[in-house]
């Protein structure tokens, strides 16, 4: 089962020019869905998520040869995905002409414009509440709540101390609760 090859084996195959493309295909297949959903929850729209995911994998192709194996490939990929998502959101903010006084943020509008959006369902209220969080805190919440990532790994992905991540997650949950109850 090629998909079950561990990351070290995939990296070795990638360094061999004869097996490079095959190894890269396996890496994409192994991580594409996890990374897609992480990105999608950050940028909300599928088209945006697709752009960020493809750009991210192309960057991975260009720099994987120099990847330092002292960190896990899985952690490294999540770090790139998170940074690419945050960069994309920053660029979107700069391009957006919507005033900060507007009631609805662009991401809230995108959630509400989803074909399956239902304002009465808690799951969708939860999504609206998550988009109210600051971007970095949103990444912390998503990685813990949806990806169920241990703080130790999150610490490597976000390059933040575990204590700070725990505190950030705690405050994020409290903000979301407040929004759902009173929002």
């Amino acid at each position: 089962m090629a998909e079950h090859l561990d990351d070290k084996e995939l990296l070795l195959q990638f360094k061999d020019e004869a097996t490079r493309e095959a190894a890269f295909t396996r890496i994409i297949k192994k991580y594409q869905e996890k990374l897609y959903w992480h990105i999608r929850r950050m940028v909300v729209e599928h088209e945006d998520a697709n752009d960020v995911l493809q750009n991210m994998f192309i960057k991975v192709w260009k720099s994987l040869e120099n990847f330092r194996e002292d960190s896990q490939l899985y952690t490294w990929l999540y770090r790139i995905a998170t940074n690419e998502s945050l960069t994309f959101l920053q660029q979107q903010k700069k391009r957006s002409s919507i005033s900060i006084d507007d009631e609805e943020s662009p991401l809230t509008n995108k959630i509400k414009s989803d074909d399956h959006f239902d304002a009465n369902k808690l799951e969708w209220k939860l999504q609206l509440a998550i988009q109210k969080l600051p971007e970095k805190q949103r990444a912390v919440f998503n990685l813990r709540y949806y990806e169920e990532m241990p703080y130790e790994e999150m610490s490597r992905v976000l390059e933040t101390s575990e204590g700070a991540l725990k505190a950030s997650y705690h405050h994020a949950v409290k903000k979301i609760e407040e929004y759902i109850l009173n929002g």
Partner: peptide, 20 residues
């Protein structure tokens, strides 16, 4: 709560490999 178009991941893989 989100969904992806049918066959998205297969198409995405093909796009990325083509670019690469």
């Amino acid at each position: 709560v989100y969904s992806v178009p049918d066959g998205y991941f297969e198409a995405m893989l093909a796009d990325v490999l083509q670019t690469v």
